[in-house]
Amino acid sequence: MTRRLGSTVQLLGPAAAIAAVGFVATLVSRANEIYFLNALVSVAIVVAIYVFVGNSGVLSFGQISFVAVGAFAAGVLTVPLESKVGVLPDLFPFLRDHTVGSATSLALAAAVGGVLALVVGLPLMRLSGLAAGIATFAVLEIVHNLLREWTKIGPGATTLSLVPETTGALQATLGALLVVVVAFAYQRSRLGRLLRATREDPAAAQAVGVGIHAQRLWAFTLSGVLCGFAGGLYVHMLGSITTEQVYLELTFITLAMLVVGGLTSLWGAVLGALAVSGLDSVLGKAEEGSFGPDLPTGSRLVVVGALMALVLILRPSGLTGGRELSLRRRPA
């Protein structure tokens, strides 16, 4: 009974935090709503990354590439037909001549993200910890390069615009909740527990017959699915996007969120995303001069970078200590 209750709290805590942010988003002015939507979409992206990085303990700099393909797949597929030929003339015919609804585009974004993750995960997951993390940079670079230069699949170096802005407060809240529920279900499943065993002690896990490569690949693919989905939410929130928006800076900021919250717990991923996103919004407004004198451009990233480094040095397990939310006080 107590265990049941404990695990419910682990899911309900993050869900309540997301619902609260979504609720506030409906109360504030139109101009400020974007900051709350951004926080919710950040939760979706960070939890999607957490599914792989948090559960496996293997660092990845490549998950944002799945967000990128999800965003561009969902974006390109929802630009209205009558303007598509004009703004994206070089597309492959099957992309140019079809347009789907926003809900379908999210599903397709998730599928594209998952397939890409599976394909690149096959070779990369054979690498050991650190090497795997750095090699994922190769994925980020390839995807960024192709999206930026190949005009048959997207807008190339120009901005993709005219995407329907269908991610409102409700959609962002539901989207973030969906990602959190999937992540929670996965980490409590048999597969999730096997992967976490390889994180805690790879040698022991292998010795009892856990296939590290297969378990990591599962999580990498699931993370790709969720990242693609989150990318779809992201593009429908923004309405227009460039390849630079889903590249190094987003990789940095989402990793900062995950690390600040605590790498190894779902609660940490959600809390970190909300906290850093809130801080980032305030600093972004300060750079625009909302609070007295302008902060110079770039001070946003200086503060986030310093915060991330400080947390890692002083409290490497993050704000939550890498633990799930619990009602009981744990002995220190």
Binding site: G133, L301, V302, G305, A309
Partner: peptide, 29 residues
């Protein structure tokens, strides 16, 4: 960081990289 895991060290230097880059941006513009 000397006693931290390699992954933590890598993420920290990643943060330092962005920090220094942003400082450079502020100085540059």
């Amino acid at each position: 960081l000397r006693t931290s895991s390699p992954a933590v060290m890598l993420v920290t230097t990643f943060a330092v990289a962005f920090l220094l880059q942003s400082v450079a941006l502020i100085v540059d513009v």
